[in-house]
């Protein structure tokens, strides 16, 4: 199997993998998103920052179809995903984590990954395909997040930080083309956060596209190729991290300076 980057011709490679156009969403009288437009380029890490309540999680929910939007268009890999249901979005290769971790508490740690074993590199006809399948992949992911020794424990017994790691292992098990992470570093100890960042950078090298909501500025600076700032339901800035984070309006809105 080849990566989309290697397979795609230059025309598709230059197109954004995710394109959000004029998306609006209101909850009752509260206009959470107003005309949000955002392009996420293939094979890179885009940061999404903004003050609390600026609409970041709602934007995630709308993109992954857990919420309907009132107006606008969203396309992934050149096709509209608005007609899809959340599980269909997942099958297109667009996968997200949740700010409040979501895993399966009644299953064991290992089962939380094994339930998606069918999606971890389905065994193809290519005999040369040596990537880990099913259980091997689950083992590798658990080892990566340091949960292998807890593999047979019920997920309900894990701490918050461990649940966070389990969720990340779970989404990686799904073999996504694009991963949307909602505050992945929150509640994870510094050493592990550092390791996670290295892993995310390695994933990008392998052709994965990431969109990350994060409040930690050093994390954004280290990881991201581009940053978009969401404020009061609109994208107020979008560009290279240093430029965006140096912008006076951004610093005022986001950092309170």
């Amino acid at each position: 199997m080849v990566t989309p980057m290697a397979a795609g011709n230059s025309a598709t490679a230059s197109q954004p993998i995710l394109s959000v156009r004029g998306v609006a969403k209101a909850f009752g009288g509260l206009q959470v998103l107003r005309e949000v437009s955002l392009d996420v380029p293939r094979n890179g890490i885009t940061g999404l920052i903004g003050p609390n309540g600026s609409g970041k999680t709602t934007l995630f929910d709308v993109i992954t179809r857990y919420q309907n939007c009132d107006a606008g268009e969203i396309s992934f890999a050149g096709q509209s995903i608005l007609p899809l249901l959340p599980h269909q979005v997942s099958h297109r290769g667009l996968v997200r984590t949740f700010q409040l971790t979501r895993v399966f508490p009644g299953l064991t740690v290992a089962e939380n990954l094994l339930v998606f074993a069918d999606r971890a590199h389905p065994r193809g006809k290519d005999a040369a395909d040596t990537r880990p399948h099913g259980e091997d992949k689950a083992r590798e992911m658990l080892d990566f997040v340091g949960l292998l020794r807890l593999a047979t424990h019920e997920a309900a017994t894990l701490s918050y930080g461990q649940l966070k790691l389990l969720e990340i292992a779970q989404v990686l098990m799904l073999d996504p083309r694009m991963l949307m992470l909602d505050e992945p570093m929150a509640g994870i100890n510094p050493g592990l956060a550092d390791e996670l960042m290295q892993r995310l950078l390695a994933l990008r090298e392998r052709g994965l596209t990431l969109l990350i909501v994060e409040h930690n500025i050093p994390v954004i600076q280290r990881l991201c190729d581009a940053v978009a700032v969401l404020n009061t339901g609109q994208v107020m800035a979008h560009g290279k991290p240093d430029e965006v984070l140096g912008d006076r309006d951004v610093r005022e809105a986001f950092l309170g300076e």
């Binding site: 992954t64 857990y66 599980h87 269909q88 996968v95 949740f98 895993v103 009644g106 339930v115 799904l174």
Partner: peptide, 17 residues
Amino acid sequence: FQLLAVRDDEIAAARGG
């Protein structure tokens, strides 16, 4: 297996397809 996942969290199950 998938049914247990759905029982525990339908949203996370949908996220997994």
